[in-house]
Amino acid sequence: MITKRKRSTACLILVLTAIFALESSAQEKTFYDFSGRTIDGELISFEIFKGKKVLVVNTASECMLTPQYEKLQELYEEYGGDDFEIVAFPCNDFGHQEPGSNQEIKEFCKQYEVSFTLMEKISLKDDDMPPLYRWLTNSEENGTLDAKVRWNFQKFMIDKTGHVVDFVGPAGSPLSKTIIEWLNSD
């Protein structure tokens, strides 16, 4: 016969197991579980960046922050390669400052000599938000932080294991102390 105490203990164990399962499932998903299309339309798995730190940034060509392309390229030239990658997602949701087609955006980026990974244009509106950005911005999905994208050039830092570790807001420079210290840390 099951006593009231044993039933309470069993219920507590079930509740704790469910809580730990929810927490670990949020943390199990990593950047590498996602994919996207490059600006040329090629589907890539972000697993190709495994073992690298990755800076994910939403960009725009007609924004007062657009000169950050230059700083992003400078950062990429300094740190990019085997240990670091920048993945940029053009977006027209903030002030309609990325009206061009993928081809026009690619052409525009030539003036900044962009050599980091440019993805196809996306929307970050709630209903259209790609799964990657839902993961980046929601602690229940990424297990780390909540970070609503408020404008162009918000920068998310992904560690070498594919987990979100922090972000720098749109006005923060790609060469900010936060990003440089992160790149120089183990």
Rank of each mutant, 00 (worst) to 15 (best):
M1F: 04
T3Y: 00
R7H: 09
A10T: 11
A21G: 08
E23I: 15
T30I: 11
T30A: 07
T30E: 01
D33E: 09
S35P: 08
S35C: 06
D40Y: 10
S45C: 14
F46T: 01
E47S: 08
F49V: 09
K50I: 07
G51P: 08
G51E: 11
K53Q: 12
V54I: 13
V57T: 10
T59L: 03
S61L: 09
E62P: 10
M64G: 09
L65N: 03
Q68A: 05
L72I: 09
Q73K: 10
E74Y: 07
Y76L: 10
Y76D: 10
E77W: 15
E78D: 02
F84D: 06
E85Y: 02
A88T: 14
N92L: 01
D93W: 03
G95R: 02
G100F: 15
Q103T: 03
Q103D: 02
Q103R: 14
I105V: 14
K106F: 02
Y112S: 01
E113Y: 15
V114E: 01
S115P: 04
F116V: 04
L118P: 05
M119P: 08
K121S: 14
K121G: 15
K121I: 12
S123Y: 06
L124D: 07
D128L: 13
Y133G: 00
R134M: 06
L136T: 04
T137Q: 07
N138M: 05
N138S: 05
S139P: 06
S139Y: 12
S139F: 12
E141V: 05
D146L: 12
R150M: 13
R150A: 15
I158H: 04
T161W: 00
G169I: 09
P170F: 10
S173K: 12
S173N: 06
L175H: 03
S176A: 13
S176P: 13
T178F: 01
N184E: 11
D186A: 08
